[in-house]
Design a binder for these strands. Sequence first.
DNA 1: TCGCGGGCCTAG
DNA 2: TTAGCTAGGCCCGCGA
Length: 912
Amino acid sequence: MNFQILDADYFREDNQPIIRIFGRSEDGESVCCLVPGFEPYFYLSASGDLQKLGEEIMERFEGVKTFEIVERFEPIGYQETKKHMLKITTYDPGNVPEIRDDVASMLGVNAIYETDILFRNRFLIDKGFKGMGWVSTEMEEPVPNGKILCERTIRTSHISEVQKIANSSLKYMAFDIECLPHDGGMPTPDVSPVIMVSFAFEPAYKGHKTLVLVMKEVEGVDEDVEMLPEESDLLDRFFEIIRDYDPDVITGYNINGFDVPYITDRVKLLNESGSNINSAVGRDSRVLNYRKVINRTIVSITGRVVVDSLPLIRQQFSLKRYTLRNVSKELLNMEKLDVDAADMEEHWNDSGEKIRKFIDYSRRDSELALDLLLNLKLLDKYIALSRVSGVLLQDTVSGGQTNMVEHILLTEFGKQGRVMSTKPDEETSAFRRKQNEELKGGAVLEPEKGLHKNVIVLDYKSLYPTIMMAHNLCYTTVVPPGKYPKDKVIRSPSKGEFVKPEMFKGIVPSVLEALLDKRVETKKLMKQASDEGESQVLDATQLALKILLNSFYGYSGYARARLYSLQMANSVTSIGRGNIARTEDIVCNRIGKVIIRDNEAYLLDEIDELRDNDKIVKLSVAYGDTDSVFVHCKNEQDLEFEEGVFSLDDSALVGKKVASIVTASLPDPMELEFEAAAKRILLIAKKRYAQWIFEPTNGGWTDSIKVKGLETVRRDWCELTSKMLNRVLELVLKEGDIEGSVEHVRDLVDRVRNLDVKKDANLFEDLVLTKNFSKSPSSYKNKQPHLTVVENIQRRTGVRPSIGERIPFVIIAGKGLFVDRAEDPDYVRENNVPLDVDYYIQKQMLPPVERILSVFGVDMATLNHDSKQKGLFDFDSSVEDNTPALKKVIRTKEVSTNEDQKTQSSLFDFYS
DNA sequence: TCGCGGGCCTAG
DNA sequence: TTAGCTAGGCCCGCGA
């Protein structure tokens, strides 16, 4: 039988561990496969007589089954030879944590290794199985299901990996609960009952796409509603439905933060007072439970995957708010239905329309949760990450990059006879964090500020991974500086030394090479794929490979990693910094000029003499950040090309030429790529710019305005700022319309100045700011506007928003500090509190737009002009007063020269 | 008035 | 943010 691995764990049978793999088979059955015969082990290195030490350990610790003297490399540093170590095998996985500290403190023991690897991961790694990977079983014996809640349970030790791209069809279930709070506050499980539970299923459950359980009799409802008179019956039915449906994936919105702990606590309470709710949900019949680990609730259900979509959406989408209402609207374009907390009791006690509405609202929440998961394909990425890294799906969904990197490295270390370090203790991590103050990052080039035409964007393909590959940077190649002769090592600008690949090819570079090759291969397959589903799987796979490739650098400087090398991390970035500086030098000085002739790009020394129709392109670097360079193309006189002279295709010719020359000078597989051509680009500051960018797309060009770092992409500015700035950027970049920009800003300033909240509710919404409530109030050293609002809300409702929530606020009129005048928008709306329109004009609108338009000589006064006071026709003269050069250019289409350097606009002819 | 630290969020 | 990394802009409040 072939099945795909969803989850794995182990249990004990006659004092032997038996591995249990859960999955779904090719023909759609849920499967549990028992695999006996796998044993737990760990390593230790010691000085002295290893045989004697092994015997002593056997004698002293009952759990130790056997030992073996083996040869292994230590985890960190290049080593010429392996060392003798002890491999200790125990009877039970639980024995290892029991004895490891005692063993570590025995005389002569230097270090212990791999004592903290979960047994199921140890099994997967040693057998070469992967999370969401396919396996095939033979000679299986059927086993009576007993407590196992799968459609088939088998037992075999003949199990092997199978190659298959497609995924099995999983069963998804979303749920949501409603609780009845006392007097409109937050419900708490000690007093407020669960009155409704809703489900959404994919595929349908016995013909039901959704189902709502309600704790009362309601008339006039459809067959997707079940009525149960008692809360305990309702909860019992909830678990019965889960067991009966047998989902692979259980999802919901904020279920880890709310629903699961609530139901668990409620069941405990009810069962303690005489109820008999069977809350078994795991495929091993384990009851629903949760663990709290600082700030985080961990929920795991054996054999299934629990996916709370809230953290996934937080990670993947940058939104101003993450309420289900806002997320559904922004990402699904669907409305959440809602009963106000204050009206909940009234709806619940109603026996007509209101209670039916309440039921529909509850149903909708489950539908939305399922839609988020499926329509946004939230899980695809994680399934691909599991298949590529080998980590079980639950761990890629709820874990970080560390998990995956360490899983991959443990696998490769094992293959190459190298042991893996244990996780560092607190002290070691703290020490490393201190050391990390020495860790330098990427270089950011000083931008040539202002508006430019014809800028080519070049960037390095996977810069840090390719640096590690090209220079053999690895934990396994790093050597103490000076230990080996100069010609034997690669030395980085940060003075890190690594042996050359001829001496030893590093494990990290090898892994990266394999990942990169696989990504190229996957992209190729994707182009050939005819089936839509297969193409999607391949796309998720190449994305997963990209994520993994980029995880290794960050991991190398991570204080809590099993493997840590400041030398390696610093070498990566120092080579990166050297590289971008060298790239700038090649572009500006070694290349300098490119000749375009007959649709080909040439260097000066590639042609004999200049001809009449040759286009001479002068290159300079306008900006660059870490792995990118923006190359500014100008004419022979070092001026912008006139409109129509330098085409997008010319950009591509120059870009590809430059990229190929730079690439040729680099060690394999480092590669500079032509990415896009910007017709115009506005550079404001480091990490802040906007481009009218043209990206090559199968034969043609696709254009868009791309904004980086400016207020339009920042969530701590109000929507009005974003909208205003977006319009200004579009006018400036696409049309060169400074005058129009100024008018647009003035119109908006007027509207805000004359704001009437009752008449213009939309504008009010656009004035709402949000900031993340990121830590406990006591640890803030300064006042913060969102903290003021958190305190206000807590004072008024008794409920404090949770840490990690984004807090919306507006600034109200009054005296005193800005931070004290932040207020909850809901409160302001309900109580008609006037806003501080001056704050919005002076602090939210004018400064961001001034930073952009000052490039053209437009100042605050021009923008802040009051139409009511000065009249509508005042504009032209005010522009003339402030910026004569600007107006001249706009009005007369004059082709300017270099004479006026004061305002950038004088360099261009926008209207031609 | 200016410089600085805290805070937030983004680029890469 | 609920365990990859650094660079860096900008706002606010505070104190010299």
